[in-house]
């Protein structure tokens, strides 16, 4: 557990990382109101949410140890399917998350993993 970095190094590193993670987050919220984006860009941006959700979900659910796992043993896949089903039936996100986590733990317990 020996730290490879001195305290000062770590703090400088954290400071730089802070700037680098702040800029992408704020740049448009800060400047876009005054910035007339071209119409095609605006239209494309409306599709960003539809694209970003599956891009976040599918790798997390499908990929195990660097390969696609489509088997019934993939507890995450099953849990995501249950979460999606519950989401269609009820709008409450909290219940959906809970259902997904319960499914995942049940599957893991069943498989003894």
């Amino acid at each position: 557990m020996a730290a490879p970095l001195s305290s000062l190094d770590a703090w400088i590193l954290i400071a730089i990382m802070t700037v680098v993670s702040f800029l992408p987050r704020a740049v448009f919220l800060l400047f876009a109101p005054d910035l007339a984006l071209p119409e095609p860009v605006k239209r494309a941006l409306r599709y960003v949410p539809a694209a970003v959700f599956p891009a976040l979900i599918m790798p997390a659910v499908l990929i195990t140890d660097g390969r696609i796992d489509f088997s019934a043993d993939n507890a995450r896949l099953a849990a995501a399917a249950v979460a999606a089903l519950v989401a269609v039936r009820r709008g409450n996100t909290f219940i959906v998350v809970l259902a997904g986590m319960v499914t995942l733990h049940a599957m893991k317990t069943l498989h003894g993993a």
Binding site: V20, S21, F22, P24, R25, A26, V27, F28, L29, L30, F31, A32, P33, L37, K42, L45, R46, V48, P49, V52
Partner: peptide
């Protein structure tokens, strides 16, 4: 890793035009 936030920030921005730049910076943070 955080570059994707550019897209999220850009998608939200048109809905936050009535909010001051200072507040938007804080929200973006």
């Amino acid at each position: 890793v955080n570059l994707r936030h550019v897209l999220l920030s850009a998608a939200l921005a048109p809905h936050f035009t009535s909010v001051s730049a200072g507040r938007n910076a804080l929200l973006g943070l």
